[in-house]
Each structure stands twice: as C-alpha cells, then as structure tokens.
Design a protein around this nucleic acid. Sequence first.
DNA 1: ACACTATCCTGCAGGC
DNA 2: TGCCTGCAGGATAGTG
Length: 289
Amino acid sequence: MPELPEVETVRRGLEPAMTGQNFIAVEQRRADLRFPFPPNFADRLKGRRIDALSRRAKYLLADLDDGGVLIMHLGMSGSFRIESLAPGLFHHDRSKDPAHDHVVFQMSGGARITYNDPRRFGFMLIEPRATLAEHKFFRDIGVEPLGNELDGALLVRLFDKKKAPLKAALLDQRLVAGLGNIYVCEALHRARLSPRRAAGTLARKNGSPAPGAVRLASAIHEVLEAALAAGGSSLRDHRQADGSLGYFQHSFQVYDREGEACQTPGCNGRIQRISQAGRSTFFCAGCQK
DNA sequence: ACACTATCCTGCAGGC
DNA sequence: TGCCTGCAGGATAGTG
C-alpha cells in the first residue's frame, strides 16, 4: 500500500498503542520477510520500552530504551492491525488473513499489534540509533517532501542536468524521499507537467526555477497534505491501524483512471497509461506538458 | 554515472 | 469452474 501519506497515517495510528509502552511479548511466526529477521529478534525486543515512534521516508522507526531502533518497512502489502482486550478502545476482531500475520507485538498498555504482509516485501530490523544516519538505508536518502525544505529551487538543484524523465526522478528515493507511483502521478498532473519530460528541464537558463518547478513543489505538498488529511489511500482493502479506511483514492485525478476524461478545467484530454521504468504512469497529454 | 530490467512474493482480475 | 497471464502502493542487485 504504502507511500508517505499511508506510512505516516500508520505511524499516527500506532503511536498511542506503542509510544511509552513496553513489549510484553513478541511473536515472530517465520524466519524472514524480505530479509531474515535479526537474530533473537523477539528476545531482543521483549521488555524494551518504545521512547518514540517516528518516520523517515517510508520507514517507521521505533526508538528503544536500550539505544536500538526497530526499523519497520511495509513494502508493497504490509499493514498493522491493533486490537485490545480493553473494552471500547479498539475493535477486537479476528484476522481475515491469518496466513499472512507474521509478527505480533503485545504491548504493556494492552494493545495487541499484528503485522500482516501477504507479499512479504516488508521487513523489520534492529539497528543502533547512534549510527542510523550512516546505515545503508538512510545514508543516501533524499529530502522529506513535507515541510518547507522542498521548494522549486531545491527541485531544480536535485534535478540539475538529469535526463531521466520526471516520473523516474520523483520516484528516486535518493532525491525526494517517500513518493511512490501514485503520488508522483498525481503531483505531476496537478503541476501540469509531463511525466516524460526530462527532469533537468525545470530550470530557467540562468538556473532559477521555471514556473513548472515551483508548481511541482507546490503540487507535491498539496497532494501529500490532502492525502494525509484523508487518512491515506486504501487500495485493495488496505486499512489504517485502527481498522478504518483512508479515502484519498476517491480524489485521484489520474491514478488508475485510464480512459477517463481529464478533470483539469478547460482540458478535453483523456487519461492515458504508459509504462516507465517498468511501472504504470497515468497522465493527461492534453494538459501535462 | 546513469538508467533500464529482472527479481523477491502472493493475490486478484480478466481472458479464454 | 479452472487455468493462464499480467499486474499491483517498493526497492535492490545486476547489466549495459
């Protein structure tokens, strides 16, 4: 499921059930997901308190009280489910998909948190907090697109001289961290920029950001903020940690809308689908230049 | 250095 | 009904 808005939505859902609480029990039901679990994974966590739950790009980071960090990535199909025996706080329903419930955390506050991941592209690792910035997953990671750092000028700098199409450049986590296939398509449409355009063409001749670069930075902010406000997008029945569904998928302008009329005012185009770098790109050639 | 592709894995939709 | 193919929100290693 998860791009930045979905991962952030998951983080917000998990926070009250995890932060400040201890792992009472950890059940690891198989040896690996995308990677093998660390040695003694369950024992390593048991008894530890989570001091903070944060997010970097699409990674969830649980700071442990022994200086370690539990790194969690949802891959394509990972999700968390929170249940509690405490009445009224959470749903307590059985998993519809127990075959893919791979990890269960029992927290001291009473929450039972289950990680489910049919495709097993997700993973969990434990690394020292002190050297996390140098870890291979984080060493080369790009700018967080929420907040003020990302603007037209920065996009121009990041994309300088790049011949790669905008679609590929925006998906590159080393440049901007957290965008995935959906929100890249949506942001480009919102900015009226073609996904096929070379990324290095967003600058004016003097190097200052062209209007398109400024529009793109704004579009990224807007689409991510709107998705966050909607609780993310729920495709293929993906849910938030509390069981509720995000609804931003109803606001998609292009993603998975091949053949539909473009909604941009004054545009008579239709949404088309092309393949770039092995992934589907949805866009309107009428208004995206 | 850069940019494709193949790949990991399972489920689901669509065609026949 | 079943079987097959292709595709899916990610990210990496390998290739040219």
